[in-house]
Design a protein around this nucleic acid. Structure first.
Length: 968
RNA sequence: GCUGAAGUGGUGGAACUGGUAGACACGCAGGACUUAAAAUCCUGUGCCCUCAACAGGCGUGCGGGUUCGAUUCCCGCCUUCAGUACCA
């Protein structure tokens, strides 16, 4: 029979499901291999053709590893809490759990059709109480922990309490809030329970604190920094403002250094690591305190160039700095206030666009440089950010271009501090070369010496010290939304307390509608009678979207466990993710938070590895490829007329800059409008057309007529200039559409649904075609143009096993040398390609192999059986069918054929002969020949002599098995 | 501006450590089969000159360099995409 992909694919998908063919073994002698996909948020739109790209790649890898003898864990699940379901619930009143369930079913159906080897017995859903019980449990562990800087890890809060009891706060080195109190053990003992809790909260790894948050009024919730783009919410694009609120936070900054160091130990794409490094933003420098003249305040600044401190000619505060009002002299008050008013008006976007213009205002106050005792002016300026460092900066115009511009603009002194600084009257020179001048006690020193000396000096004087600063802030961990994990906390006397472990999960209560209350409280406040022990108010925020995804890979290891998030044995066996495939949009969100929670869980001994994802691959984005038809509209006195003109005519139109009578004549259009503004009554517009009725940019006229009622009688001017008959029918020319690459979206009619392609070509073709498209990591527009080629390949492959009458026929004859060579070439190629994630090149190689074997008319079992296994990871259905036709069972338990290099050994090679590096001809030479004999043979060739044309070779390069180059 | 990735035929792309640039596929053109179309199969296909073949010239964003030999290495520049944004 011909290749019947529909029946074959359905048959084997059912077989795999019925037999649980891809269930990972819990205990196995085989080495483990864990392949993870970033699990999807099940959106209402379902999968488009871009989503499965990474899943296909990881599936090929998983199936390959299985054939190579690994116990493979390859699970799938759903990140099923999230805003869209809730927005939909607000609009329709439908419970988000219901729509989520529907969406998941759609996803599952679509995923199943593609033939993935997921172990569905381990499926997880973050919105399932059996799952979020453990998300809540981890939250509780974080609440019950503090970060000990001495041991450099998280510890149970009990060890901190023990320290407080024994020695008070003195010996404690912790990652904590800035406003912790100093106390003796006797003070601690005398604290009330409430006071103790207040103090401990400042140390906990998740804590409640009044913080400035990104408040999005339109979404009614706070957003994390990585959910805000240019002052607008990433989702929806609503304005975001800064607002002070009591919020749960995660003390991720405690792990900043470890998150940074860990990057050097993992195999991730460099850009991804770089993004995380930038996000964490570590800078090494010093903090220095400047005394304010006539006030007992000290302004602390952070600098990465403490060595330039003698060059300070002014100090700047951020306009939002809380001391600004107090430190402004009465004379300057008007200036400062008008400047602040001015900066407040500027949105964040304006501030960015304005980066080049210098602005600021003098407070009238002076501060004292602690190293020189000099008094310098205190300014405010919006180039200083309140949120970074201390919100105060020292200005060193000779060494920093921005400071130089500021000083020049406001006529402040520019002091040279290094003898190597050049042209500082033209611009700043940030060199670290040379020796210090005008720099008091560091005069004559060099950079390294000066930094070390100053850091020590500042510390001795108590006016500063070496300091490391991070850009990263603690992560806000609460959303004023319904569809998320409830935070397992209740409040007693205004203080937060955890639920008992056995009270988990704290299940989301039912509410009447999914909106904030009239008083602005989160939706959970609507839940009637929802109180802890019927008395205490629960926390009304829910967890942010990233909570459930920050540990899910552990749940897959032991998904049904109700005693622990995963058993110790399961964690000990699977350890970490060997290969993680997903998009790079999660660089600073999910991937950072996951590493943070992982390190925390490791500190407490729940998991074993410092890093959860050993190797990471980013699949590129699939963009949409939109098609256009060009509609020529003619407004005439007797009504409007429309012509759809094919692409080359549209091109001509645009080239002639619009209206051209000669072009209109050429197209044979009757355009008899007379009067003024003739050219304005005719216009051309490109209109998006559904890509599903276009094939290879050629419009399917009939489908187009049926697409929209108004196109039913459309008139076309085809590529060859002929005009369609208004009623359609008959023989018609080609209408070619225009093309543009855009985001894949419904409104652009460029969404390609995998279901459609699977119906037409089958899952195996889709899988291979998605890989064939290009390197996995590259972004590219989706283009269905080449899919036929892949489908033809699979038919050709099928054909190898069948005779002219489509009867399954294989021979048991001994394979020839050429056949073995073709086979072993592909074995090696696929092995190498998969190991380096170059899936596109193996698809080409499969085509070559099948072409070769077709030419050889090979239908030998000895060859084809191995070929089936080699192709199995890419096109599992057709291979499983052929495998069973060959009389075998369960391809998933087969072994990948062993490559034998002997079959590839050649005794001759067609050497390319080049003259002066230009290839001229090929010459067959024995591969046993060495330099001397080979060159002799080359020169003896008549053809070579012909090319030399009498010239005598100066030198002959001979690279065995590669090339001969004759230099004349 | 900074950081990162990329730039190869009409198109997607290949060439893995410097060694035959354009594999494989799409598209296109021609042919076979067919009453016809579809499907299938065969042939050709980087560009230029040439009726054509032979031969030749030019060709991996641009300009240089290293080398017997560069898509690959080095220097400078241009363009596109992504991330980031006054980070002290």
């Amino acid at each position: 029979m011909d290749y019947q992909f529909r029946e074959i694919e359905q048959k084997w998908q059912k077989y795999w499901a019925d037999n649980q063919s891809f269930k990972a073994e819990a205990n196995s002698d085989k080495p483990k291999y864990y392949v993870l996909d970033m699990f999807p948020y099940p959106s209402g739109a379902g999968l488009h053709v871009g989503h499965p790209l990474g899943y296909i790649a990881s599936d090929i890898f998983s199936r390959y590893k299985r054939l190579k003898g690994f116990n493979v864990l390859h699970p799938m699940g759903y990140d099923s809490f999230g805003l869209p379901a809730e927005q939909y619930a607000i609009q329709t009143g439908q419970h988000p759990a219901v729509t989520t369930e529907t969406n998941i079913n759609t996803y599952r159906r679509q995923l199943d059709q593609i033939g993935f080897s997921f172990d569905w017995s381990r499926e997880v859903r973050t919105s399932d109480p059996a799952y979020y019980k453990w998300t809540q449990w981890i939250f509780m562990q974080l609440f019950n922990s503090w970060y000990n800087l001495e041991t450099d890890k998280a510890e149970p809060i009990s060890t901190l309490i023990h320290k407080f009891n024994e020695a008070g706060s003195a010996d404690v080195k912790a990652a904590c809030d800035d406003d912790t109190r100093s106390f003796l053990p006797t003070d601690w003992a005398a604290f009330s329970e409430e006071e103790k809790q207040v103090e401990l909260l400042k140390y906990r790894l998740t804590y409640l604190k009044e913080s400035t948050v990104n408040w999005c009024a339109a979404l009614g919730t706070v957003l994390a920094n990585d959910e805000v783009k240019d002052g607008f919410s990433e989702r929806g694009g609503y304005p975001v403002e800064q607002k002070k609120m009591m919020q749960w936070s995660m003390r991720i900054t405690a792990y900043a250094d470890r998150l940074l160091q860990g990057l050097d130990t993992i195999d991730w794409p460099e850009p991804m690591k770089e993004m995380q490094r930038n996000w964490i933003g570590k800078s090494v420098g010093a903090s220095v305190k400047f005394k304010v003249e006539g006030n007992d305040k000290q302004i602390e600044v952070f600098t990465t160039r403490v060595d330039t401190i003698f060059g300070v000619s002014y100090l700047v505060l951020a306009p939002e700095h809380e001391w600004v009002a107090e430190l402004t002299t009465p004379e300057q008050k008007v200036d400062i206030e008008s400047y602040i008013a001015q900066t407040k008006k500027k949105s964040e976007l304006d501030r960015m666009a304005d980066a080049k213009t210098v602005s600021g205002a003098f407070t009238g106050t002076y501060v004292i440089n602690p190293v020189s005792g000099e008094r310098v002016q205190l300014w405010i300026a919006d180039y200083v950010l309140a949120g970074y460092g201390t919100g105060a900066v020292m200005g060193v115009p000779s060494g920093d271009q921005r400071d130089w511009l500021f000083a020049t603009h406001f006529n402040l002194p520019i002091i040279q501090i290094l003898d190597a600084q050049k042209d500082i009257d033209q611009q700043a020179d940030a060199t670290k070369e040379g020796k210090y001048i005008n720099s008091g006690f560091i005069n004559g020193m060099e950079y390294k010496e000066a930094v070390a000396f100053l850091n020590q000096w500042l510390e001795d004087q108590g006016v500063g010290k070496a300091k490391v600063n991070f850009r990263q802030r603690d992560a806000i961990f609460g959303r004023q939304r319904y569809w998320g994990e409830p935070i397992p906390v209740y409040f007693k006397d205004g203080l937060p307390y955890l639920l008992k472990e056995e009270e988990l999960p704290l299940v989301l209560p039912e509410i009447d509608k999914y909106l904030p209350t009239e008083t602005g409280e989160p939706p959970l406040a609507r839940a009637e009678g929802w109180k802890y022990e019927d008395r205490y108010e629960y926390e009304l925020s829910t967890m942010p979207g990233w909570a459930g995804s920050s540990w899910y890979w552990y749940r897959y290891m032991d998904a049904q466990n109700d005693k622990a998030f995963a058993s110790k044995e399961a964690v000990a066996y699977w350890k970490d993710v060997d290969l993680y495939i997903g998009g790079n949009e999660h660089a600073t969100g999910h991937l950072l938070y996951s590493r943070f929670w992982n390190k925390f869980l490791k500190d407490l001994g729940f998991v074993q590895e410092e890093e959860p994802f050993k190797k990471l691959i980013n699949q590129g984005m699939i963009q949409g490829r939109s098609n256009f038809v060009y509609r020529l509209s003619i407004m005439q006195n007797d009504g409007n007329k429309f012509y759809f003109i094919s692409k080359s005519w549209a091109d001509k139109w645009y080239k002639s800059d619009g209206y051209s009578q000669s072009l209109i004549n050429e197209m044979g259009i009757d355009f008899s409008f007379e009067g003024p503004n003739k050219e304005r009554s005719i216009s051309l517009s490109g209109i998006h057309v559904d890509v599903n009725i276009v094939e290879n940019d050629r419009l399917n006229i009939q489908k187009f007529r049926a697409w929209r009622p108004e196109y039913q009688d459309a008139v076309f001017i085809f590529e060859d200039g002929t005009i369609s008959s208004p009623t359609g029918g008959g023989q018609e020319g080609a209408y070619i559409c225009g093309v543009e690459v855009e985001k894949m979206s419904k409104s652009k009619f460029n969404v390609v649904n995998p279901d459609v392609l699977i119906a037409q070509y089958g899952a195996d073709t889709l899988r291979m075609y998605e890989m064939f498209l290009g390197p996995l990591e590259q972004s590219k527009p989706w283009n269905t143009n080449g899919i036929e080629g892949v489908f033809k390949f699979l038919r050709k492959f099928w054909r190898l096993f069948h005779n002219e009458a489509w009867e399954f026929t294989v021979s048991d004859a001994e394979p020839t040398k050429a056949e073995l060579k073709a086979l072993h070439k592909i074995i090696k190629k696929v092995q190498d390609d998969i190991e380096r994630f170059s899936f596109n090149t193996s698809v080409s190689s499969f085509m070559i192999a099948v072409n070769e074997l077709t030419d050889l008319k090979c239908n030998k079992r000895a060859i084809l059986q191995d070929l089936v296994v080699v192709l199995a990871a890419y096109a599992p259905h057709i291979c499983e069918e052929l495998w069973s036709l060959l009389g075998n069972k369960d391809l998933s338990t087969a072994q990948f054929p062993v490559f034998n290099p002997n079959y590839l050994i050649e005794d001759e090679f067609a050497y390319p002969i080049s003259i002066n590096g230009k290839m001229k001809m090929n010459l067959n030479l024995s591969l046993t020949l060495e330099q001397e004999d080979a060159t002799a043979a080359v020169l003896a060739s008549e053809q070579v002599q012909g090319f030399l044309n009498g010239a005598s070779p100066k030198k002959i390069i001979f690279v065995k098995g590669k090339i001969v180059n004759i230099v004349v």
